[in-house]
């Protein structure tokens, strides 16, 4: 007690703060920071499995060169996942916004509907859905393979129907992926004060106008959050082709050095993409800042 009194309040504060943090910091250092640093180191190495465990052998940039020149899978996969993302992000954003607007209206059973819209997140994030979508015999009959096809094929020509149903399938997958985004938009919508709408209404604005002049600018920060979330989520999800490839390289081919290299290239790419998103949003964000 005596010794403690001699410390200034400031140092005491810092000490207390760190004692609260310590448990987490230890865990983070051991299982996130150190492995991260190691994998960066390994990406410049070739790892050999010997009796003493993994032995790194420094080969400089060779792994990086290999990724961009000799590896036939890497570049196409990279293109695919980025292209897929460019399509997926706007789709998810639009659907999530739409659903959030629907769910934000006063109605019977609102809690129920909100719950239902969030439900796919719970199932989709698991291994179960992955298996479900991949299983041959037990493939989930969405639109393409269901009896709906047989029923509609008499009315609509097959050439039109087939792509239409495939599209519906894809859209359904998008919908299942947007539970969290819907919630984030809902959160944003609830921070917009009702008096703004009232004022607009009195001034004779239509619903359509007040959406574009009030709602949309007010939830721009949420659009940013959602874009970031969608990017990170789809890049790190277990269904991502690139992730599967990395897993394959690391665990099936046991080529750990090269696996970390791809991992880091991929990571840097996400980082650049996120930076780009920030740049795009910077202007619109600073303009909303004053209105709040």
């Amino acid at each position: 007690m005596k010794k403690r009194m001699r410390l200034t309040i400031r140092t005491r504060n810092v000490l207390e703060a760190y004692s609260f943090l310590s448990l987490w910091l230890i865990g983070f250092a051991l299982f996130m920071a150190i492995p991260l640093g190691r994998s960066l180191y390994y990406s410049f190495n070739q790892l050999k499995v010997t009796k003493e465990g993994l032995v790194p052998n420094w080969i400089g940039m060779a792994n990086f060169r290999r990724a961009f020149s000799t590896d036939v899978n890497f570049i196409p996969l990279l293109q695919d996942s980025i292209l897929g993302l460019l399509i997926q992000v706007p789709l998810i954003l639009i659907f999530a916004m739409f659903a959030a607007l629907l769910l934000n209206r006063p109605m019977i059973g609102r809690t129920f509907f909100r719950g239902v819209f969030f439900l796919p997140v719970i199932i989709a994030s698991g291994a179960v859905l992955v298996e479900m979508l991949e299983q041959g015999a037990e493939r989930m009959p969405l639109f393409t393979s269901s009896s709906l096809f047989l029923a509609l094929v008499d009315i609509i020509p097959r050439d039109v129907l087939e792509p239409l149903l495939t599209l519906a399938d894809k859209l359904t997958l998008v919908m299942w992926d947007s539970g969290v985004q819907i919630l984030i938009f809902l959160a944003g919508l609830q921070t917009v004060s009702l008096s703004l709408y009232e004022a607009a209404d009195i001034d004779g604005a239509t619903k359509w106008e007040s959406f574009w002049k009030i709602t949309f600018p007010m939830i721009t920060p949420m659009i940013l959050v959602n874009t970031l979330f969608t990017i990170v989520n789809s890049f790190t999800s277990a269904r991502n082709e690139m992730m599967l490839y990395i897993r394959d390289v690391v665990f099936s081919k046991n080529d750990y050095g090269y696996g970390s290299t791809i991992g880091w290239i991929y990571f840097i790419l996400i980082f650049l993409l996120i930076g780009l998103v920030f740049l795009i949003f910077r202007k619109s964000l600073s303009s909303t800042e004053g209105r709040r």
């Binding site: 983070f28 051991l30 299982f31 996130m32 920071a33 150190i34 492995p35 991260l36 190691r38 994998s39 390994y42 465990g53 993994l54 990170v232 890049f235 790190t236 992730m243 990395i246 897993r247 690391v250 750990y256 696996g259 970390s260 991992g263 880091w264 991929y266 990571f267 996400i270 980082f271 996120i274």
Partner: peptide, 16 residues
């Protein structure tokens, strides 16, 4: 670290 793929961390974590 939120952005980093968990797959690559697996082996260093295993070593720890």
């Amino acid at each position: 670290s939120l952005m980093f793929s968990p797959m690559v961390l697996q082996i260093p974590q295993y070593l720890v």
